Amino acid sequence: MEIAIPIITLVVGLVGGFFIGVYYLRKQLEKMQSDPDMLQKMAKQMGYNLNGKQMQRAQQMMKNQQPGAKMPQPGQHPARKNSGRRK
Rank of each mutant, 00 (worst) to 15 (best):
Q60V: 08
G21R: 09
R86C: 00
P74Q: 08
R57S: 09
R57Q: 11
I3A: 15
A79C: 01
K27G: 15
Q73S: 14
V12C: 05
G52L: 04
Q56H: 10
G68H: 05
Q33L: 05
S83T: 07
K31Q: 12
A58Q: 05
K81D: 09
M32P: 00
D35G: 08
M46F: 09
H77D: 00
G21W: 15
L25R: 08
Q65R: 02
G16S: 11
P6I: 14
V11N: 07
A58C: 06
Y23S: 07
Q59E: 13
Q45F: 08
I7Q: 12
A4C: 00
L29E: 08
M32R: 07
M62G: 11
M71L: 14
I20L: 14
G47Q: 10
L29Y: 12
K41Q: 00
F19H: 03
D37N: 14
A58L: 10
P78F: 09
S83F: 03
K41T: 06
Y24T: 07
G68F: 10
K81A: 05
A69F: 03
M32I: 06
N49P: 06
N82E: 09
G52N: 02
I8D: 04
K27Y: 11
D37Y: 10
I5W: 15
Q65S: 04
Q59G: 06
I3S: 05
Q59I: 05
I20T: 09
I5Q: 15
R80H: 07
L14R: 11
G47P: 02
K63P: 01
E2M: 15
Q59V: 01
N51R: 06
Q76M: 04
R26S: 13
A79L: 05
S83G: 06
K53S: 13
G84C: 10
N82H: 03
N51D: 08
I3K: 12
N64I: 01
Y24S: 04
P72D: 01
F19W: 11
Q40I: 11
N49A: 13
Q73T: 03
Q60S: 15
Y48E: 11
P36G: 07
Q73G: 05
V22C: 05
P72K: 12
K63L: 00
G21P: 13
R57E: 15
G47K: 02
M42Q: 12
M55G: 06
E30Y: 13
Y24A: 14
P72V: 02
G84H: 05
Q76K: 13
P36F: 13
M46C: 09
K41D: 04
L29H: 05
Q54T: 01
M55Q: 06
Q59Y: 03
Q73Y: 03
E2R: 15
G17I: 10
R85H: 09
Q28I: 10
M1S: 14
M55A: 07
K87I: 01
A69Q: 09
M46E: 15
R80M: 05
N64Q: 12
R26L: 08
G68V: 07
G17E: 15
Q76I: 01
G84W: 11
P36Y: 10
D35E: 04
N82G: 02
D37A: 12
S34I: 10
D35W: 09
E2L: 14
D35S: 06
T9K: 12
S83L: 03
G21C: 10
I20Q: 07
R85D: 03
P6Q: 11
T9L: 06
G52C: 00
K44Y: 07
N82K: 01
Q65A: 06
I8K: 12
